[in-house]
């Protein structure tokens, strides 16, 4: 029938245009980065390494992969973990530019190999060694002198992976992994966490001052204030988020953002929080959408019969 032919032409031309300006154009505008399923084996670091760094990166990740094979002793690790508590104590005090993260859910949040690498050399693990003349200068660099033997590292990581686990809510995951550098104002979070309720404006302003001071420290450490993540989930594509969080250098070469080493579980929890603050209507959309569409399907069927009724004696 003629009308269907015309419809086909209109639909095909519209779809070609859509394909051109959306999937195709975006595939050309953004470089394609392949993720590594949240496995941290140094493959990408070695592939992207400069000539000078290549040998050290290879050696570093080779050792990490070796340590990963050692059976760790969680009990021995617990004793060593006391060393970590000096900084990772939940006191919320800025050290060298950033508040050391609370490690209560580190076992869920972070990948095993990443933790090994981090204890071995934090700057190399987080792939920001380009920022430092010596990786000892990293705020956590001193750990290299504190936990040194491969077996020690394996033990601490075994302890973290078995004992520092718990129910990982999206919000906790976000606060521990991202919240010390990135605010999330739609979630009511600053770099100092949730803002308490104050009785007087003066107290509120005093707290604001503390937040600004903290932001200044982070700014000094990172070069600029890291962006607020309230609706980042809508500002970047899913693929970008995933590959960027796994290895920031792939999407933004030279960025001062460290790789945080999220496990798949950790990433899913963080993503859930970003969706909660940035795209809260998702469930409602999926619940209401089909009913609205059903309404218009019925509307269209009825309209079709109405049309038939009026047009039946015209031809």
């Amino acid at each position: 029938m003629k009308e269907f032919k015309i419809l086909a032409v209109v639909v095909i031309l519209s779809l070609i245009t859509y394909w051109g300006v959306e999937p195709f154009a975006h595939s050309q505008m953004h470089k394609h980065v392949v993720g590594n399923e949240f496995n941290y084996d140094g493959k990408a670091d070695i592939a992207d390494a400069t000539k000078e760094k290549l040998a050290s990166k290879k050696a570093f990740w080779g050792e990490v992969n070796q340590i990963a094979k050692l059976p760790g002793n969680a009990a021995a690790g617990e004793a060593l973990f006391a060393t970590c508590m000096g900084c990772h104590n939940g006191a919320g005090i800025n050290m060298g530019g950033v508040v050391p993260p609370n490690l209560d859910h580190a076992g869920n949040l972070y990948d095993k190999k990443y933790l090994i690498a981090l204890i071995k050399d934090p700057a190399m693990a987080s792939n920001v060694d380009h920022k430092y003349a010596s990786t000892m200068m990293h705020p956590m660099g001193a750990v290299q002198a504190m936990v040194t033997a491969p077996q020690q590292i394996a033990d601490v990581v075994a302890y973290v992976k078995t004992k520092k686990v718990g129910k990982l809510t999206p919000k906790v995951a976000y606060e521990e992994a991202c919240g010390r550098c990135h605010s999330n104002r739609y979630g009511g979070l600053t770099q100092l966490g949730e803002t308490p309720k104050f009785k007087t404006e003066k107290e509120a302003l005093a707290h604001q001052m503390k937040v600004l001071d903290e932001q200044d420290l982070v700014k000094k450490y990172m070069g600029k204030l890291p962006p607020d993540l309230s609706i980042m989930i809508r500002a970047r594509s899913e693929q970008y988020m995933e590959t960027f969080i796994e290895n920031p250098q792939t999407q933004l070469p030279g960025t001062s953002m460290p790789r945080v080493g999220l496990s798949k579980e950790g990433y899913e929890a963080v993503k859930a929080y970003l969706e909660e603050t940035g795209d809260p209507s998702k469930d409602a959309r999926h619940a209401i959408g089909p009913w609205v569409i059903l309404f218009f399907v019925i509307f269209t069927v009825l309209a079709y019969f109405w049309k038939k009724h009026h047009w039946k004696d015209l031809h």
Binding site: T300, A303, Y304, W306, K307, H309, H310, W311
Partner: peptide, 8 residues
């Protein structure tokens, strides 16, 4: 009537 159908 035809318009309304197409609109649907």
């Amino acid at each position: 009537s035809k318009d309304v159908f197409v609109m649907g």
